[in-house]
Simulated scan of single mutants.
Amino acid sequence: MVTVADVRPLALTLPRTTEHLIRDRVKFRVGSLVYVAFSRDETTMGFAYPKEERAGLVAGDPDLFFLPDAADLRFNWVCCRLDRLDRDHMTELVTEAWRMVVPKFLARQRLGG
C-alpha cells in the first residue's frame, strides 16, 4: 500500500514541485497546475493522465483505477486506490503526471528522451 508519505519524497525531488494543503487535501503542483492530489481520507490519489488514454487504463485494471467525478472529467485526470497501488507503479504514475505539467525541456533534462 502506498501513502502520502511514500509519494512526498519522490514528488519533492521533481523540479518546480511544491506541496500544498488545500481544503484538507494534500496536492503536489508545478506553478498552478496540480499533477497529484489525495482524497481527504488519503485512500485515493488523483493524477494527471492523458484523456485519450484513461479509459484504457481504467478498463485494464478497474480494481485499481477509476475515473474522477463527472465534474472533473474535463481535466486530464484519473484516480487510483492507494491500498492496491505498489511503489514501483506509483513512481511511474507520479513521474509521468509531473511530465505532463512541466515544459518539455525540463522533462527531458530530468528523465531523458
Score class of each variant (00 low, 15 high):
42 E>F: 08
43 T>H: 06
43 T>S: 04
43 T>K: 07
44 T>R: 04
44 T>C: 07
44 T>Y: 05
47 F>I: 06
48 A>I: 08
48 A>G: 10
49 Y>H: 13
51 K>Q: 14
51 K>I: 10
51 K>D: 09
51 K>W: 05
52 E>Q: 12
53 E>Q: 11
53 E>R: 15
53 E>L: 13
54 R>T: 05
55 A>E: 14
55 A>R: 13
56 G>K: 10
56 G>L: 09
58 V>N: 05
58 V>Y: 04
60 G>P: 07
61 D>W: 06
62 P>W: 03
62 P>I: 04
64 L>Y: 05
65 F>H: 12
65 F>T: 10
66 F>Q: 04
68 P>H: 11
69 D>T: 13
69 D>M: 15
69 D>V: 10
70 A>W: 10
71 A>N: 09
71 A>R: 13
71 A>I: 14
72 D>V: 06
73 L>I: 09
73 L>E: 13
74 R>L: 08
75 F>H: 12
75 F>C: 10
76 N>V: 04
76 N>M: 03
77 W>P: 06
77 W>R: 13
78 V>G: 02
78 V>P: 01
79 C>M: 15
80 C>M: 03
83 D>L: 11
83 D>M: 09
83 D>E: 15
86 D>C: 04
86 D>E: 13
86 D>N: 14
87 R>Q: 11
88 D>G: 15
88 D>W: 08
88 D>C: 08
90 M>V: 09
90 M>D: 06
91 T>H: 15
91 T>K: 10
91 T>A: 15
92 E>V: 15
92 E>R: 14
92 E>D: 11
92 E>K: 13
93 L>V: 02
94 V>C: 00
94 V>W: 00
94 V>I: 01
94 V>E: 00
96 E>H: 06
96 E>N: 08
96 E>Q: 07
96 E>G: 01
98 W>M: 00
98 W>G: 00
99 R>V: 13
101 V>E: 00
102 V>W: 01
102 V>Q: 00
102 V>K: 00
103 P>N: 02
103 P>A: 01
103 P>C: 00
103 P>F: 00
103 P>E: 01
